[in-house]
Structures are given as C-alpha cells and as structure tokens.
Design a protein around this nucleic acid. Structure first.
Length: 179
DNA sequence: GCGACAG
DNA sequence: ATCTTGTCGC
C-alpha cells in the first residue's frame, strides 16, 4: 500500500509516480532478484515529452533498466497534434504492427504511432525511455499485444484495480487507478 | 469563454 | 484518470 502525495499534472507524471515505481523495483531486487525484468514497459511517455524526458526516461535512469514509453493518447508536444492530418494517418494504418513516425516541428522523431493489433482503431504512442532504440521498442511492444494494450501494462492495470477493489474498496481514502 | 488534457 | 450506456463477439 502506498500513499500518493503529488497531484497529477500533465507533463509531470514522473514526479507523482516514479518514486513508487523505483521502490517496487528495489523491493523486487531484494525479494525476487531472479524475476528482475530486462526491460520495462512504462504506462506513459519517454522522450515524447515537453522536456524530452517523460516518466519512462526517469524510471530508466533511476533503475538502470531499459524502458519503453507506452502512451494511450498523443501528448501534444513540439507541434505534434491530434488533428485531422494525424487522424488520417491513423486511418491509413492497415495491419497490427503498422506504424508512422511522430516528427515534431524541430525535425526530431519523438516516437511512433503503432497499430497494436489488426482490429485496433486507436494506436499506441511508443517512445524511447532508456537504453533502447525506437525500432526495438516498437517491435517488442507489438510482440506483447494480445489486445490493444500490451499485456504487461494491461495485467498491471487489471491486477492493481482488483487489489484496490479487494482491500480498500469500501473504506479507504480516495486513491485511484494505477498506483 | 477556449484550448489542452501522458496517468 | 473515472463514469456510464449500449453493442458485439466468444
């Protein structure tokens, strides 16, 4: 059980969540070091970020583990917009695994939109977090997708909600979601 | 009032 | 993120 202190502010997700994620990794290293993952799929962005340093970068630097930013919505950064042109590019994605690059006004490729399976309408927004190329990040994420959300993120989502429902669903303070 | 809004 | 209603597929 943890208690969040910082509020959620777009662009500052890491300052809210990263201390608890680092602590979870530290506890895993202590108790089950053989289960330490070689890579983390992080619910949020990596370099696709206002300061080029989202939660997946923070977590990577603080743990030393390769990290991938996996966002479900486009963070509108460096001129990137969820506008008609962007929506048309989404519409043109054919099969699961199809992508298009997310290039900001600066000319930098900040990430890739990924159609995570054949019948998914909304893409995932993949970006580099730490110690991994964008191409490898996209391929690995796609390989984890049984449904739209890659299974590690999806299971974390489902199991954390279930835990919250079981333990403090009736009495606890207002704690929500992914913690 | 309007745009933006990772989770 | 959360909530809600409805629909479709297995």
């Amino acid at each position: 059980m943890i208690c969040l202190t910082a509020p959620y502010i777009s662009g500052f997700l890491a300052f809210r969540e990263v201390p608890f994620l680092v602590d979870a990794i530290r506890r895993l290293q202590e108790k089950e070091p053989t289960l330490m993952p070689q890579v983390l799929l992080v619910d949020g962005n990596g370099v696709l970020h206002h300061q080029g340093f989202g939660v997946a970068c923070h977590l990577g630097v603080l743990t030393g583990l390769p990290c991938i930013g996996v966002a479900k919505k486009l963070l509108q950064v460096d001129g990137l917009e969820n506008n008609a042109v962007h929506k048309e590019k989404i519409r043109l994605l054919q099969a699961g695994g199809d992508t298009f690059p997310l290039m900001g006004n600066s000319g930098t490729i900040l990430g890739m939109a990924l159609k995570s399976h054949d019948h998914s309408t909304k893409p995932l927004y993949i970006s580099v977090g730490h110690k991994m190329s964008l191409e490898a990040a996209v391929r690995l994420t796609h390989c984890c997708c049984r449904f739209r959300i890659p299974e590690p993120v999806r299971q974390a989502d489902i199991r954390s909600r279930e835990y919250i429902r079981r333990t403090l669903g009736h009495s606890g303070p207002p704690v929500s979601g992914q913690e």
